[in-house]
């Protein structure tokens, strides 16, 4: 016999299920209940930096869009600071850095408006490339999937990024790079997430 460690065990995850919207986006489920739903405004009107839109699809192993996904984003402001006591510095009033979006029930498209994040420090040395942390839950996903979105117009920062550098297979790094386009004068980054199979997106255990 050895001594017993007295740590608690983390509560195990379960799928968010097909009706996740009821709890986290009730308007999309079809009813209005809260004074204000949380998560629809990531950066707020006072945020400095380049205004961007990020959008994409989540695609399953058969190549079909997943139409009942809830996706959350977590990012730094344009200075590379996170809105948190350990976030590295101040952020603008109203900048929460966190957002929540759902996929369209008919098309599976999701998207959110934000500002392009700045670089923040890496774990031990160096700076990370601008990135947005994403967390994906849905029916059929037993534990939320973590990934990161990087920007294709940051090739030097991406090349030096310590997290991208950890991915042994260089061709898989490309699954984390959002494509920049412009539409009606707005900057749009396209980021399709492939859950399984050809071009499978890199997911992290963080």
């Amino acid at each position: 016999m050895t001594q017993t460690l007295d740590y608690l065990k983390e509560t195990a995850s379960q799928t968010a299920g097909p009706y996740v919207h009821i709890g986290l986006a009730p308007g999309a489920a079809g009813f209005d209940i809260y004074r204000e739903e949380l998560g629809w405004d990531i950066a707020g009107p006072n945020a400095k930096g380049e205004r961007i839109r990020v959008e994409g699809l989540v695609i399953d192993g058969t190549g079909s869009p997943v139409k009942d996904v809830l996706l959350e984003a977590w990012q730094a402001n344009a200075d590379g600071n996170h809105a948190h006591p350990e976030g590295g510095g101040d952020v603008e009033d109203g900048f929460r850095g966190w957002g929540r979006v759902i996929t369209d029930f008919a098309t599976g498209e999701w998207g959110f408006d934000t500002v392009k994040p700045g670089r923040c420090p890496g774990r031990n040395v160096g700076m990370q490339a601008p990135h947005i942390n994403l967390w994906i839950v849905a029916r059929g996903i037993n534990v939320g999937l973590n990934t990161r979105l990087y920007f294709e117009d940051e090739p030097e920062a991406n090349a030096a990024d310590p997290v991208l550098g950890l991915i042994e297979w260089e061709r898989r790094r490309a699954t984390l790079i959002a494509k920049r386009t412009e539409r009606d004068g707005q900057i749009v980054y396209r980021f399709d997430i492939r859950l399984q199979g050809d071009g499978e997106t890199v997911f992290f255990d963080i």
Binding site: D60, V66, V163, Q196, F204, D205, I206
Partner: peptide
């Protein structure tokens, strides 16, 4: 079955 990644997670 169709919504589970086939590759391992990358540990960070």
């Amino acid at each position: 079955v169709s919504r589970s990644p086939q590759y391992s997670l990358i540990s960070l």
